[in-house]
Amino acid sequence: MSIEVRNVSKRFGSFQALDDVSLDVDGGALTALLGPSGSGKSTLLRIIAGLEWPDSGEIHLAGEDATPLTTQQRGVGFVFQHYAAFKHMSVRENIAFGLKIRKRPKDEVRSRVDELLDLVQLQGFGDRYPAQLSGGQRQRMALARALAPEPKVLLLDEPFGALDARVRAELRVWLRRLHDETHTTTVFVTHDQEEAMDVADSVVVMNKGRVEQVAGPRELYDAPANEFVMSFVGQATRIDDAWVRPHDFELVLVPNGSTREAQVERVVHLGFEVRAELVRDDGETLAVQLTRDQAAQLELERGQIVYVRPTHQTTF
């Protein structure tokens, strides 16, 4: 089911959360809303779900105007950052909630819940209460609960934000696989660009209540639409009027005309790569990314003088 956002604006007091936002999400796509906090991404998601009302603009679901519909009527699945588990219900009861509300027959509810427990790998946890689960398990339960009524749209608000790094990485892979199996139109909110690029087919970059760019992960990185996207998605250093990615520098020990002098401030070994932090003669700092071999060859150390030249730069 496709989602269309048309000229949506939303204000909270004096804060403009969304400023005339329009967005098309194709049916079956996996889309990330990416932006810093306060960029309006969560507000947009909640407006799509009907949990907030836009001050102006329209929301269309599957080509039909859903703006006047309540959350209850929109039939979207929603996953909250802090799980919103029904604490007084067991895992089974949580997952069955949407089905019971729809008065589905008992047998059907039972088999659907079993199926979902399998899907989210919580077999054997059905009779536990949310308080007895880990964060990752709770979020998987919340996902199963949202999926139970077979929503045509699945919306996730920073779904992995409250989890530790390892569980987060696991759930990312898992969400991607889930989407590949079900092809439910999915939109998730994140402030983590790596997460957005890792999971989504299409990334919507938001800033200050506006959409800055909509693109696939690769295009977003290689052809950012503006300076905000350039600096927010991936790292970039500004040199005069141009922006340079950390891996687009050449580092040499002998000046060759087009290079500039810089001093090594710090060398960081990140395992598979090495990051050198340089200070140029004009005081500008640069982060340069090198392979292990390059770094070994240059024998970089703190205080050393090197010569640096951008191999690729972007201007706006």
């Binding site: 779900a49 009907g50 949990l51 309540t70 959350t71 209850q72 039939g75 979207v76 699945g77 929603f78 909250f80 802090h82 919103a84 588990a85 029904f86 604490k87 909630f97 949407g98 509300i101 729809r102 919340a142 609960r145 949202a146 139970a148 009524p149």
Partner: peptide, 10 residues
């Protein structure tokens, strides 16, 4: 949040 979740579930 639990109430919002219930509403999204219909």
């Amino acid at each position: 949040e639990q109430e919002q979740a219930a509403r999204t579930l219909g």
